[in-house]
Structure formats: structure tokens, C-alpha cells
Amino acid sequence: MQETLIQFAIFIMAGFLGFELISRVPNLLHTPLMSATNAIHGIILVGGMITIAADGPAWVKAVGFLAVFFGALNVVGGFWVTNRMLSMFRPPKARVKRRKG
């Protein structure tokens, strides 16, 4: 029970942190931000790895396999596409430097 209460406390604190982190972001960055947080919930892949590693019949393993596949797709696709978006936001100075270099 103690463990559950601690988890619940962390849940509440993380919730407040999430609100605070996002509340002051320019519109300019809303799409990349949504895309990046979308990649971060790919953390569900951790759960997939844990569940596939536990014993079970073939159908449970198959369910776990699909979960890990989905999770990896969420993580890799999410971060990759966010990076592509943000590569367009390079400051003008950096661009000039790259051209010279």
C-alpha cells in the first residue's frame, strides 16, 4: 500500500510539472512540441519490454511482440519526425556559418 501511495504522489507531482513545463510556449513551437511529447509517451516501449519478457502462452507473447513493435514505432518515428521539423528552425546565423564552412 505504501508503494502505491508513493506512486500516486509521484503521479500528482509529475502532473503539475507537465502543466508548468508547457504553459509558456510560443505558438511557433506547438506542433514540434506536440510531436516531441508524442515521442516521449513512446516510453510505453519500456512496458512492452517488461511484459514480453514474462512467461506466457504464444498468444500473450504475440500480444507483447505487437506492443513492442508499436512502442518502437512511436519512439523512433516520433523523435525522427520532430527532428526533421526542428531542423528547419535553425537560427539564421548557424545557416551562414554552415555555408561558409
Binding site: Q7, I10, A14, L33, T37, I40, I43, V46
Partner: peptide, 27 residues
């Protein structure tokens, strides 16, 4: 993701999932 963190008793799932849940709501 946060809820599955409670099921698996895994802290990173709870923290990261909740941050996304809260920030997604604000957005």
C-alpha cells in the same frame, strides 16, 4: 502510459506518461 506504469510498478512510465498527459491537456 502512466496507468500502465501503476500496473507494472514502473516509475519512468508513471513520470513520463503523466508529464505528456498533463502537457497534452494544456496544449
Amino acid at each position: 502510459a502512466a496507468a500502465s506504469g501503476f500496473v507494472l510498478e514502473n516509475y519512468i512510465l508513471i513520470i513520463a506518461g503523466t508529464i505528456v498527459g498533463a502537457s497534452g491537456t494544456i496544449l
